[in-house]
Design a protein around this nucleic acid. Structure first.
Lengths: 97, 97
DNA sequence: TTATTTGGTTTATGTTATAAACTTATCTAT
DNA sequence: ATAGATAAGTTTATAACATAAACCAAATAA
């Protein structure tokens, strides 16, 4: 009846990060921070979890002389996100079976 | 950009309970337990939280000689659920602004 | 009458989200 | 040149939360 919800995605900030990356394909850490309103610390932790899970990949490079962390969604992440959205529907539809 | 998600509803079991009550209007504890697959203990705690928040009302009555706990969604709960669904959309839509 | 089932509640535990504190490096003004 | 301020994160600590395990009381079955 109710589909289980991937706990990795069923968390506000991680869901927001994935949502951004789904449409952006690539985003820098400070941009994600700004768009989500998260603190750097919280974002760092959540990005790490998504990365460890293989849902995103994180490239650490430099922009001039400053460090620059770029995040991209992976195929696995995209699939997981889609599955999560499907699962969510089982909670939101008025007609369930 | 991203709408905050009501933490009371952004929890798998509580969301399932609310989802059931949205369409059922009234349900007994054991029925909810069966439909959600939750343990009685967990369900008891979560029902209590929803009740404390005023999202549902809990009537303790008897069915013959056995206790019977009936749950109903309140107007406040219905509104909160609708708001939650709206907020969720900001995470799921590909086109955001 | 003594298990067993029903219908829960309370308590304990492990996980998680989040914020606060810290680090390292760069830029800016003095 | 050096003291502060800012950028870009990471690490650590805390508080909240979800969940399960243990427990309780009453009713039914053996």
């Amino acid at each position: 009846m109710f589909q289980p919800l991937d706990p990795l995605l069923h968390a506000e900030l991680r869901l927001a990060v994935m949502s951004l990356l789904i449409s952006a394909d690539e985003a820098e850490f400070p941009y994600i921070k700004e768009q989500t309103g998260a603190t750097a610390g919280n974002l760092s932790v959540q990005v790490d979890k998504l990365s460890t899970a293989g849902y995103i990949e994180v490239e650490k490079t430099f922009k001039g002389k400053r460090p620059c962390t770029i995040c991209r969604i992976t195929d696995k992440g995209r699939l997981a996100f889609e599955a999560y959205v499907e699962a969510l529907k089982s909670y939101l539809q008025v007609s369930r079976d």
